[in-house]
Design a protein around this nucleic acid. Structure first.
Ligand SMILES: [Mn+2]
Ligand SMILES: [Mn+2]
Length: 475
DNA sequence: ACATAGC
DNA sequence: GCTATGTCAGGTGCT
DNA sequence: AGCACC
């Protein structure tokens, strides 16, 4: 298979590079295309200038190494994209299909058109095959947004442009209606990140932009609020019980704590308005349960939380890779994200089919194997004193009421970092937590979409997985 | 943000 | 009446 | 029962 297509258009006699397409083709279609490509392989670059296929982009800061296979520029395909960047390549390109009706030599740059026609571009091409990665670099934002509309039903899945901004840069206090609820945002000029001078407004605008991608991981889940009303260097506090303290449209989930004989209520996220409401309270971090109120004791995912303590992030990356190998060996799907702070989170989809207890014990089995393979710098001891500074393979977050920073959650850390879902091919030397922030995550999402989505899928078969553990690892 | 204690 | 201060977690593994 | 930990 190939990871991306390099395409271009003719300027006079010269074929000019216009970008790399990494999405929009199915596995089946890819197979057919590869057959077609076989006869067109050539040894030299057909473009006027050779593109750098390994150039990092803003949303793939550390792309997997790609090798190019050049093709004769004989084939034409259709591509949707949101605009041309200042570097002259397509922004958020997505493959829309081959065009057997067009000759390669006819493919010219399209002019900006009215909103009714063509977000479409025809191009001749060649391709850089690679294993299975999905790379799609591009660079820097254009200064204006060249409006390219959608050509109706022709485009099934055009790359989405970033959502527009929620709050204006001028007023310190603003009201907006979201999901039919009037939300008041105040203290918008308050500096939440002093070193960078990022404000509460910056954070709220971020949450608004990513809300559609983030909501599935929050909806119907009780929340543990961790509030920083005066920014990341100010005092913070936890808030779980919101009974009588939130507007009536905010959903809640009743509970009783062990010691206190008082009725309490968790806040439950239900829509964008509730996400923005939490953020407006200074909840920089969003910390949802792993289960929903529909099945409060049955988590949708199992978490393996890698906490580095004194170790380098390189070692955490190595630990994540070993964890992935162990899970691959027993045929268990898993997905990975940066914590946004110092560690890495690995999620295994459970489909709300098992209890927290089962999830925890499954995680324990996995991390026990990982620890035995990396005894030098990992630990599963709960007591920090016994860990001796090793990476903690934390499986104990798989219990009722425990939370972790959600996918795409902002963290109260320098740089306004966010928890960033990753492709496994990005989890390698060179990965940096600080590469993912409130300012570049919306672009990455528009480009590659929510790659964490399978976490909410059908879920693994734990019985089969445990059987595989027994046979593969002889435990 | 809000309740209560203290001046 | 005004300002200062306090409060806004909690279950669990373990000793 | 109390503490440490997340
Ligand atoms: Mn962690
Ligand atoms: Mn942890």
């Amino acid at each position: 298979a190939f990871s991306a297509l390099l395409v271009g258009v003719y300027r006079g006699k010269k074929l000019h590079y216009t970008g790399k397409i990494g999405t929009g083709f199915s596995d089946k279609l890819q197979k057919e295309m590869m057959k077609q490509f076989a006869a067109l392989v050539r040894s030299t670059n057909p473009f006027d200038e050779e593109p750098d296929v390994n150039k990092p982009s803003r949303f793939r800061p550390n792309p997997p190494h790609a090798e190019v296979t050049w093709l004769k520029p004989a084939l034409v395909c259709e591509v949707s994209y949101t605009e041309m960047t200042t570097d002259g390549v397509m922004r958020h390109p997505s493959f829309e299909g081959m065009r057997i009706d067009k000759k390669a030599s006819q493919v010219k740059e399209e002019k900006a058109m009215a909103v009714t026609k063509a977000a479409v571009k025809k191009t001749a091409k060649k391709s850089p095959p690679k294993k299975k990665a999905k790379g799609t670099p591009r660079k820097a934002a254009g200064p204006t947004s060249t409006k390219t509309g959608r050509a109706g039903s022709l485009l099934k899945k055009a790359a989405k442009a970033e959502r527009k901004t929620l709050l204006n840069p001028a007023d310190a206090s603003q009201e907006r209606t979201v999901n039919g609820e009037k939300l008041k945002f105040s203290n918008l000029d308050k500096i939440y990140w002093p070193k960078e001078k990022y404000t509460k407004r910056d954070m709220l605008n971020y949450y608004y932009k990513v809300a559609p991608y983030m909501l599935p991981y929050l909806k119907d889940r009780p929340q543990s609020l961790n509030r920083y009303p005066n920014g990341i260097n100010g005092p913070s506090f936890y808030q779980k019980d919101v009974k009588g303290k939130v507007p009536e449209w905010i959903r809640t989930f009743p509970y009783r704590s062990e010691d206190e004989a008082r009725d309490k209520e968790f806040l439950v996220a239900s829509n964008e308005a509730s996400l923005l409401y939490m953020a407006s309270l200074g909840a920089i971090e969003i910390n949802p349960w792993s289960s929903t109120i529909r099945k409060p004791d049955q988590p949708d995912w199992c978490i393996i939380d890698l906490d580095p303590d004194t170790n380098t992030f390189e070692k955490v990356i190595e630990t994540a890779r070993v964890t992935k190998e162990v899970l691959d060996a027993i045929k268990v799907d898993c997905y990975v994200k940066t914590s946004g702070s110092t560690g890495i989170h690995i999620y295994i989809p459970l489909g709300a089919k098992y209890t927290y207890e089962q999830s925890k014990e499954f995680a324990r089995a996995i991390v026990t194997i990982v620890q035995s393979q990396l005894p030098g710098f990992t630990s599963i001891e709960r007591a920090t004193k016994l860990r001796k500074g090793k990476i903690y393979l934390d499986f104990l977050q798989n219990r009722p009421q425990a939370t972790l920073a959600a996918p795409y959650s902002v963290r109260p850390k320098p740089g306004a970092t966010v928890s960033a879902p990753l492709d496994w091919d990005e989890v390698k030397k060179g990965l940096k937590l600080k590469d993912f922030t409130i300012f570049n995550m919306p672009d990455r999402l528009a480009g590659i979409g929510d790659i964490f989505k399978p976490v909410l899928g059908k879920g693994i078969n734990m019985k089969t997985a445990i059987k595989n553990i027994e046979s593969v690892f002889e435990v």
